[in-house]
Design a protein around this nucleic acid. Structure first.
Lengths: 232, 232
DNA sequence: CAACGGAATATTGTTGACAATCGACAATCA
DNA sequence: TGATTGTCGATTGTCAACAATATTCCGTTG
């Protein structure tokens, strides 16, 4: 199947991608980057003017973001950037942990050598990034690692949900410690996940993949406790 | 003060509910009831004319259905009723099983006496429906039972996902055996779930809630195997 | 001075029309 | 005959305008 998007990518000709997609990406970026704070309302007229398009694409893009759980729509009041509570975010961690377990188990069962080699390479690269003290690079590699597992699982809905929940979590805008120790611990978990995948141990891969995210939840909880006691 | 709202209220001409919600419900009904077959395209102009509204509400309703995984949108080609493969449907069962486990565990931990009493009553009612041979009533009670657990869990996203995945599963349009034996077995599982909830045993509730759906997956697989061998 | 009511304003909901694009069919040519 | 291309109808994408609704602000009133 060839659609306009494929055509323009294949030919290099900048055929105009549907505006709604451009607007959607831009809105998503604005939200995830915090340019639009959580709880804020997306003003259709101003956004439309700002992007030089009509309100229709903006409206559709907003509805599209609703699918990823980034915004909620209130009738006659507009769409608002979601402002998940701490409890809701912890719930997201649990959901993501379960789905990650499912994904890792699948990868252990079905992945080919190339995928396993790539995953292993990513863990090594992350270790290098840690030693180099490059937190930004580590974060990027980390995201790529998880996305690749999600893709390699060969699932549809589970993969979709995993990445969508990943975006949703970012709405809380709480940066995890990111210390060298935390990164080392996290990457050790990555290592165990990939090790289980390499030997095709689906059950261990599931447990490790799930636990990796539950540990992230624990780290978040600890961070919140510390913040509370500090501020109170 | 004379405005449309007052006029409508005075004349009994109620139209405060946005059209998009009406259209959404109608579309969802049409899809879940099979009036629009899986894989079919939703024709915006004809649907709009059929419901006596403009295309915009139809478009928005379609985007809204995308969130529940009932349709997919292809650029410049339209929105299509999703046609999940057997593998994808099995994946949905696994996702739903995990989420159900999470929900049941929560209910065991947090529910009050009233909720537990109601859940127990539903199991009893389902048992009555089975003995009375009323499969339709049983199915309705069954849906209500699961929905109530999802609500009682007090979770946000997990609850949403659970009901959405429930709708999505129906797209395959494969009716499970529904024999008296199957219903008895299923309700026995309900009983074990509620029993765990009643004594506040979260871990058992989680396991039973998850297993209940995995059993459903197994029943679906068995049904498919039988259909295959029969048709081949 | 605070609480209430009501107009003025801003924003969303809905509509119909126009432009861009796709799928199908027919006309053309090797 | 078979493949290619041009054209046409149908459908989606986008727009600007109108209607309905929510929000804000200010004057009134107790």
């Amino acid at each position: 199947m060839l659609n306009a998007a494929n055509m323009c990518e294949a030919t290099g000709f900048r055929r105009q991608r549907p505006l709604v997609l451009e607007v959607r990406d831009e809105l998503e970026r604005m939200i995830l980057d915090g340019e639009v704070p959580a709880g804020a309302r997306l003003n259709e007229p101003s956004l439309a003017a700002q992007m030089g398009v009509s309100r229709a694409p903006v409206r559709e893009a907003a509805r599209s973001l609703e699918r990823d759980g980034l915004v909620t729509t209130v009738t006659n009041q507009g769409v608002f950037v979601r402002k998940p509570s701490v409890e809701q975010t912890l719930e997201l961690y649990e959901l993501r942990a379960m789905i990650a377990g499912l994904l890792c188990g699948r990868v252990a069962q079905t992945s080919d050598d190339e995928t396993r080699t790539t995953l292993r390479a990513r863990v090594t690269q992350m270790a290098d990034a840690i030693e180099a003290g490059d937190q930004e690079d580590y974060a990027a590699q980390n995201t790529a690692f998880h996305d690749q597992i999600a893709q390699a699982a060969g699932t549809h809905r589970a993969t979709e949900l995993y990445v969508a929940l990943g975006k949703e979590v970012r709405l809380l805008r709480l940066r995890s410690p990111d210390g060298v120790a935390a990164m080392r611990a996290s990457n050790a978990e990555h290592d165990r996940i990939v090790a289980a995948i390499e030997i095709g141990d689906a059950e261990t891969a599931r447990l490790e993949g799930s636990q990796h995210h539950l540990n992230g939840k624990a780290r978040l909880l600890e961070l919140l406790d510390r913040t509370d006691t500090t501020q109170t």
